[in-house]
């Protein structure tokens, strides 16, 4: 067992955990942040994507104790209270989800990607989400939502 301090969505958590626990397991089972999903547990589907220091990672492949000292952002940390992020709004507008199970991971991947590359091409968007599997939508509305969002951000210089 190991004592760690994990910083998630701006809040610090003092935890005593087994060293073998993944970040995904700690988020879901210890912190009850169940917005982050387990789809495969082996880094093949992207459903568990969170941001670590702003970069998208598969939380099933990160050990929780190695996440200490880093800023973790999950889907629960994206909206500002009731105010949704513009990525979330674009997802609603474009019906960019169906069952919704891949959605939190997909949104976190997009968040990390757009923060690094605010003006991507369509190809770059498709490349960015290629590690996030979605079985319902066929991806089209997701890419459309991101394209639309990029355009809007460009127009009003607005980014939240």
């Amino acid at each position: 067992m190991k004592d760690i301090i994990l910083k998630v969505n701006g809040r610090k958590y003092n935890l005593r955990i087994d060293e073998s626990m993944t970040l995904l397991k700690v988020l879901r089972e210890e912190l009850e942040l169940t917005g982050t999903k387990e789809g495969c547990g082996e880094g093949e589907c992207g459903a568990c994507t969170v941001l670590m220091d702003g970069k998208a990672v598969n939380s099933c492949l990160v050990l929780a104790c190695e996440a200490e000292g880093h800023d973790i952002t999950t889907i629960e940390g994206l909206a500002d209270g009731e105010l949704l992020s513009d990525i979330q709004e674009a997802f609603i507008e474009h019906q960019a989800f169906q069952c919704g199970f891949c959605t939190p991971g997909m949104i976190m991947t997009i968040k990390g990607f757009l923060d690094e590359n605010p003006n991507p091409t369509e190809d770059e968007i498709e490349e960015a989400i290629a590690g996030n599997l979605c079985r319902c939508t066929g991806y089209k509305p997701i890419v459309a939502a991101v394209k639309d969002l990029v355009e809007r951000r460009g127009n009003d210089g607005y980014n939240r």
Binding site: E29, T34, G35, F91
Partner: peptide, 21 residues
Amino acid sequence: IPRVDAYEKVTGTTKYMSDLS
């Protein structure tokens, strides 16, 4: 009409059966 389950799904607050404890 926007989906009635939209807000929960994009905020990760939808409780799937696998999220219950």
